[in-house]
Amino acid sequence: MKRLTLLGALAGVGLLPWVWEGAALWGINLFIWGLMALSLNLLYGYTGLLSLGQGVYFALGAYGAAWSVIYGHAGFWTAVGAGILCALGGALIVGWVSVRTSSFGFVVITLVTALICYLLALGLDSVTGGEDGMSFRAPALKLPGLVLPIQNLFVRYYLALGALLGGLGIAYLISKSLVGLALRAVRDDEIAAEAFGYNVFAVKLFAFVLAGGMAGMAGAVWALSKEFVRAGLFQPFAAFVSAQPDPDPLIAVLLGKAGTLLGPVVGTGILLGLRELLGSMWPPGYALAMGIVVLTRALFRSA
């Protein structure tokens, strides 16, 4: 029965743009930012690491994909791979330094990393395009026997959907495996986890790098479907300084339910809906709502 509902929902989502074309652009946003929230959920929800700079890996993924197309004339899958690799590399370096620190140290390092990357991206505008960004022509998506132009709205829709499903698959496998158990053990009690023989540093680093890679995948898909990147992707707190921001992953995770599989995606959907709803009626209400979500979640947090 459960499996049937799942299949039904999936079919519904898959057929949606055929019924209502307007849903496609909206859906693309939901899937990409949902994947981004999913990646933060691996860190915050499963492992208890609060990162305020997850956007860096999204941006690295986007730039990795864009650079490989612009400078390397890469094909579609190579570009996605390059984006993910870029993000993985960045996450490995930052994670190596940050996960051994206390919870405050971790937050500070993730935040300052975002600021440093943003400044570098603005300063090195000849390769990043600065705040104007860079447009490029995305290569066609090649599947066995199929060549799909990314400029087609439907192709972009299914690409984003595929990426999200892939992310959900990884998250599901991890939550059911021993690794997921290790992550939660570290979240709930680091010292006890250490006592049981877990290498806390390795477990945290694994979560950080995996989350970085997932954010990188979201970024690569974003860049390829927009055919565009800009330095502002690195900007720390980007979601809180713009008037109609993209859904912030942390708020999405808090709004859904941290540590659950679908919660972050649902949270992203709510944020997008709120933006759509309030954006036309009362734009400041959206940002205010985000603050209230964080504060109430924090005040009524059990831990």
Partner: peptide, 29 residues
């Protein structure tokens, strides 16, 4: 807001974050 819950670092961070967002939005508004 802060003092009573200062023990758990993660909670206190989120509280400060929430205060930051709300204050900033109230000022903007």
């Amino acid at each position: 807001l802060v003092i009573r819950r200062a023990r758990a670092p993660l909670s206190s961070l989120l509280i400060m974050f929430g205060i930051m967002l709300i204050l900033q939005q109230l000022v903007t508004l």
